[in-house]
Design a protein around this nucleic acid. Structure first.
Lengths: 202, 202
DNA sequence: CGGTCCCGCTGACAAATGTCATGAGGGGGG
DNA sequence: CCCCCCTCATGACATTTGTCAGCGGGACCG
């Protein structure tokens, strides 16, 4: 009984190498590869794999978004996320999207093969370290608006610009920015953005 | 005649997969692997490879730093950089460090193997797209101080903090920040930081 | 139904930041 | 040698932020 695998990663070097290594396993067969989010989705539709191994950061649409679409369209396809920079918030989003495996790229190929089987068998696996981080980081203390405003502030836009983009009054924007910074223990909006980013809350 | 290769990348998954693929080439042999900058240097000293393939971003010390050390200590060892996010400035720094190959991770393993041979033969290779970007981006218009101050501002530190760290007067810091932002066409220090980052000038 | 929380706004004040003019000193190049 | 640019500084000013208090409305919950 072979497991049909979809491999999505924007780095050809990694994708190709991975495909080659997984091909060495008798019970795994890579039926499709993709370099972008939309491509991954298209490949999934076309080849209906048993397990989709998705990179978190891809052009077009990120791994979690693709996983959500796959769950809706191909419920029988299990998804797992592989990532270099695992932020606590991403893990939470991924689990909400029905992802059954979440691991860093620091694992070995051998281990990845094992975990593909684990996931295919219907079990879940989350890297213990990433799980610990996620638990330690806890839930975002930010309200929806606070997060939205903070996100707009991420590229250094002035308050007026943020107010325009969010259709809010400039005063309101400043208030949200202020309360968000206070909740995060930051002394200004920019360090607040960095903090929120590091925890995957934006 | 075989080429002895050192492989440095912090992602075990990629490193292992790459090692496996390169092993398929008759004339290439991976004599050492490393997951961090310092480790890469230690491995280079211990195994004296012909070619060192270095990831740009590694814990401890980045690929260019390692390349510089290798050039000083092991002049016979050629170095090449492989990276996911190639910023124009990095390429410039890399060439200054005597790096002979610079390519994105989107290349295929097959191509990487070819290029290892190219570099080993004493030739250079720079990814055309990255080269074009580097030329388009041009040199940094920032003076040494401007860059230094901008870098300190990168984490959202207030002027007073930057002044302390650089041992400058707060007024001077603001002047540098202002002129740097003007040169980069940014409307405030934070967008200036982002711009400079995107071009690899900080 | 009252309490609590988020939303959205206003106004006012303090603090940080951006901008400009100005000046002294030093190094490099024409 | 003179000019230009970088360095470092000061002072003054406008603008942008951060902070705080307060108000009305709506949603949810006990």
């Amino acid at each position: 009984m072979t497991v049909r695998v979809l491999l999505a990663d924007d780095e050809h070097l990694i994708r190709g190498a991975l495909a080659a290594l997984l091909a060495l396993e008798d019970d795994l067969v890579v039926v499709a590869e993709a370099a972008t989010g939309p491509e991954a989705l298209a490949m999934a539709r076309a080849h209906r794999p048993d397990v989709a191994v998705l990179d978190l950061q891809m052009p077009g649409a990120d791994g979690v978004t693709v996983a959500t679409s796959i769950r809706d369209e191909l419920p029988s396809c299990r998804t797992m996320i592989v990532t270099s920079h695992g932020r606590p918030g991403h893990l939470k989003r991924a689990l909400a999207a029905g992802v059954r495996g979440f691991l860093p790229k620091t694992v070995s190929a051998q281990r990845l093969a094992e975990l593909i089987r684990t996931v295919h068998a219907g079990n879940r696996y989350v890297d213990p370290e990433l799980a610990a981080e996620a638990i330690a980081a806890g839930d975002s203390p930010l309200t929806a608006r606070e997060a939205e405003v903070l996100e707009c502030a991420a590229d250094g836009a002035p308050v007026a610009e943020i107010a325009r983009r969010t259709s809010l009054s400039p005063g309101t924007v400043r208030n949200y920015l202020s309360s968000a910074a206070a909740k995060l223990g930051a002394e200004n909006r920019h360090t607040a953005v960095r903090l929120a980013r590091s925890k995957g809350w934006v």
